[in-house]
Design a protein around this nucleic acid. Sequence first.
DNA 1: ACCTTGACGGTTC
DNA 2: GGAACCGCCAAGG
Length: 117
Amino acid sequence: MTTENEKRIWQTVQAIPFGRVACYGQIADLAGLPGRARLVGRCLASVPKQGWQGKAVPWYRVINSQGKISLPAGSEGFIRQTQLLQDEQVVVIGNKVSLKVFQWQPDLHELLFHLDY
DNA sequence: ACCTTGACGGTTC
DNA sequence: GGAACCGCCAAGG
């Protein structure tokens, strides 16, 4: 089944633009679930491969508040995430992304216009 | 029902 | 920076 929280989180992640990243806590806040960053991580692990409602869910654009990839370093997922980010011109150096440069700064008006909840 | 485990994060030292 | 601490809470044992 799909929970309401998963819907919100997946949908919010879909709003992250190409070439930008967001952190777990940021997604939680925007999804209306403040303080629940861990939930975001869990939900991203269960994203359907075919995406959600016809659109891909760019899970790899979500990293932790320190700008680091949270998957185990060297794991298959870690490698894939790094590759996908670099494919979008996001610079990953020493397992780190500069949030200063690449963090998504959403336009709240536009975001509220697109989200369903 | 109880305990542990996380793709986490803010605070504090 | 970084480490210890605490808050968070859905799943799985």
